[in-house]
Design a protein around this nucleic acid. Structure first.
Length: 492
RNA sequence: GGGCGCGUAGCUCAAUUGGCAGAGCAAGGGACUCUUAAUCCCUAGGUUGAAGGUUCGAUUCCUUCCGCGCUCACCA
């Protein structure tokens, strides 16, 4: 039973206490990082180590132990680096030897000792003294097969991180991705800002929000679905280049690509348009990939992906035409487009509006093919209430979405700064909301007032950090790149 | 939310047609001074996710519920 091992460990804990040993001491004492130790001593052979005869101190968590009666080998890990520790009965007093022998896998310890090499040439710290740093009361998952139960891996991520190298690797890739992104944006003169998560009105994306309530103000609030409208207010206020990295919350289903709470980077650049932002995305992804992976040729889901160079720019309607033979721009209304879809036998075409039919065609026939980095540009205006109209075709907007690995990793446009057009589009959204579209935006009068004060021509970008990390870490599921992904409550 | 699948010891997995729930690792005891999945001997460890039902008998068949996965819908 699970109790069995825990009782044994508790018994040892009590035994230590009764001997006057603090199982959870406050101080550690000086120690040498294992990584540094390896760097310094790995090149040295047995004789030079012996000649050096210098005592070292290491700390770490015991991950394995093997006993030969009068000789013990332990493996300790600290900061992802590990080293072997030996304890020899004939070189230690009885109490110290017994103390080391009775340590459990999982305990944190500090050893002092001398370096030597075993018969198999392994660099090893031969312990001369030991100090317990923290007692572990539960065993680690199995050492050979490891931990593969997906539910435990997500719920008890600390175990996953301890025993599965890949979990640790992905966490590192994620951290480095975010810091590389910050460095890139900072270097381009962007200012990192923070805007409200709790908002009286939500907007900036097509999604249903989470709702909450402020008790003392008796005020209904929404967890933000995007940062967009606040960041644009800052551009109105003269912060010409701003970005924010934070969580957005969308009250929708979960999938391989969707977590209800996810990390978004949004940036806005005044005096720029969506073409400038395309250049920014190409440069940023290249820069991050070089820092994180050291190469622009990566593999995702078994496909080789080349992040170098300029990415193809394909207008959305053209991409649909090429994939399906349906020229959506030639179909003036819902009915003619639906007729064209049925004529090509591309499915029922049961969405209710022209724009959503276009969206469906794209999702079904184009998106799965966008494995190499690609910009899909010039979306229908109905799908993009916050983007500026295209100069060439008023039915389209200056917008693009970068795709990698058949996954949309961002969304960008020349920001709509005409307050009257913006008002008209928001009111259009209101009408579709009345018709049952639960994801339509409400009208944000405060935002419209800001636009009336004047916003410079601005290019804006939102990028899904989780998905970018999936690409860079070659992770097939968004839950692998989120340390604590959303799961149903364990306790009902 | 729909469909399909899964849930057995701390971990990884077995269990014939419905017929006494088992192994390896981990744990406890013992042997062992060169292991790195150490080896060898012994021991203990289970409400088979939960609750019902069918049956002489259920891990196995049925129903409901809980959780997880895949998938569709939703969703950028």
């Amino acid at each position: 039973m699970s109790e069995q091992e825990r009782e044994a460990r508790r018994a040892r804990l009590e035994a230590l206490r009764s001997e006057g040993v603090d199982p959870f001491p406050a101080t550690v004492g000086a120690w040498l990082p294992i990584g540094e130790l390896r760097e310094r001593y790995e090149p040295m052979d047995s004789e030079s180590l012996e000649a050096e005869a210098q005592s070292v101190a290491v700390v770490g968590r015991i991950m394995a132990s093997r006993s030969f009666g009068k000789l013990l080998f332990l493996r300790i890990v600290e900061a992802g680096e590990s080293i072997q520790v030996s304890a020899k009965k004939n070189q230690l007093d009885d109490a110290t030897f017994r103390f080391i022998r009775d340590l459990d896998v999982g305990d944190f310890v500090r050893f002092e000792g001398n370096l030597w090499r075993t018969k198999t040439d392994e660099l090893t710290v031969d312990a001369t003294s030991v100090r317990l740093l923290s007692k572990s009361l539960r065993g680690l998952p199995e050492k050979w097969h490891g931990l593969s139960d997906v539910e435990i891996r997500y719920r008890q991520r600390y175990l996953d991180l301890l025993v599965n190298e890949d979990a640790r690797r992905i966490a590192v890739v994620r951290s480095r991705t975010v810091s590389a992104m910050r460095r890139f944006l900072d270097a381009r003169g962007f200012l990192e800002v923070e805007t409200p998560v709790l908002q009286p009105l939500y907007g900036g994306a097509a999604a249903r929000p989470f709702t909450t309530c402020h008790n003392t103000y008796d005020q209904e609030l929404y967890l933000r679905i995007s940062d967009e409208l606040y960041l644009k207010r800052l551009v109105v206020g003269g912060l010409d280049r701003v970005y924010e990295i934070g969580h957005d919350f969308r009250n929708e289903g979960v999938s391989r690509k969707h977590n209800p709470e996810f990390t978004m980077m949004e940036c806005y650049q005044a005096y720029a348009d969506y073409r400038d932002i395309m250049e920014l995305v190409e440069s940023m992804v290249r820069s991050i990939a070089m820092e994180v992976r050291g190469t622009l040729q990566i593999e995702y889901d078994g496909e080789k992906i080349d992040l170098a160079g300029a990415w193809p720019r394909i207008p959305l309607c053209q991409a649909i035409d090429e994939a399906t033979g349906v020229d959506v721009l030639a179909c003036e209304d819902v009915d003619s487009l639906r007729a064209a879809i049925r004529k090509k036998k591309l499915g029922p075409g049961d969405s209710s509006t022209w724009a959503t039919l276009v969206d469906d065609l794209f999702s079904d026939h184009v998106e799965p093919t966008l494995v190499q980095p690609t910009f899909i540009t010039d979306h229908p205006v109905e799908l993009s209430p916050l983007a500026k109209r295209s100069q060439d075709d008023p039915r389209l907007v200056e917008r693009f979405e970068p795709f990698i690995g058949a996954m949309e990793i961002g969304n960008a446009f020349s920001e709509l700064n005409d307050p009257d057009d913006q008002r008209a589009r928001m009111e259009e959204q209101l009408r579709s909301q009345a018709e049952g579209d639960e994801e339509a935006h409400p009208v944000d009068e405060d935002f419209l007032r800001a636009l009336e004060h004047g916003m410079p021509p601005t290019g804006g970008l939102g990028m899904g950090i989780d998905r970018l990390v999936m690409i860079l870490a070659d992770a097939p599921n968004i839950r692998e790149v989120i340390l604590f992904p959303h799961l149903r409550s364990e306790i009902r």
